[in-house]
């Protein structure tokens, strides 16, 4: 569960980089377990108080994070998750906020950063290092171009901005 949440928020992290208006993204996950690439597409919006992620592919789903609560809406209905009971969610939500708010205090707490050209290479430290191998963030000015996450179990996540 712990690992799961970490990656959920790593995904959100990518979303957070998009900006305050809805941004289209394309995500490719490589699953080491299945030795397969899985593609997702959708839009993410950063609000003042919430984060909304709307998936269009492979299935239509809407995720909303608001005041420590996460809601998931799909064809099966509506589900609420109280994240206060799961500290790890809050812990890794930090990463999303850190990038969105350009909060270096937060980032420095969990990553060592190195800049190589347009790319920022984040090396996890502390608890983060237990799970992640490396995070690469590519920007063009303030605009994100791509996010690449290497996970210690062999999985990979690549997020690219479409527009």
């Amino acid at each position: 569960m712990f690992t799961l949440r970490i990656f959920f928020f790593l995904f959100l992290l990518g979303g957070a980089l998009f900006a305050n208006t809805p941004s289209q993204f394309k995500e490719t996950r490589y699953s080491y377990a299945l030795d397969k690439n899985i593609s997702f597409e959708g839009f993410i919006t950063f609000g003042e108080q919430n984060i909304v992620i709307e998936y269009s592919k492979p299935e239509a789903k809407v995720l909303t994070y608001f005041e420590e609560k996460l809601s998931i809406q799909d064809q099966n209905g509506f589900k609420m998750v109280d994240t206060t009971a799961t500290p790890a969610i809050h812990y890794f939500f930090m990463i999303i906020k850190a990038i969105h708010d350009e909060n270096s205090v937060l980032m420095d707490s969990f990553f060592d950063q190195k800049i190589e050209g347009k790319e920022a290479i984040l090396t996890p430290k502390g608890v983060t290092a237990e799970i992640l191998e490396e995070v690469r963030v590519k920007r063009n000015g303030k605009k994100l171009e791509s996010l690449h996450v290497k996970i210690k179990n062999g999985d990979r996540i690549t997020i690219e901005i479409v527009d």
Binding site: L4, I6, P58, N153
Partner: peptide
């Protein structure tokens, strides 16, 4: 793994 909107890690 195939359809979850968020990454699924296996224990």
């Amino acid at each position: 793994i195939m359809t979850n909107p968020y990454y699924t890690a296996i224990d």
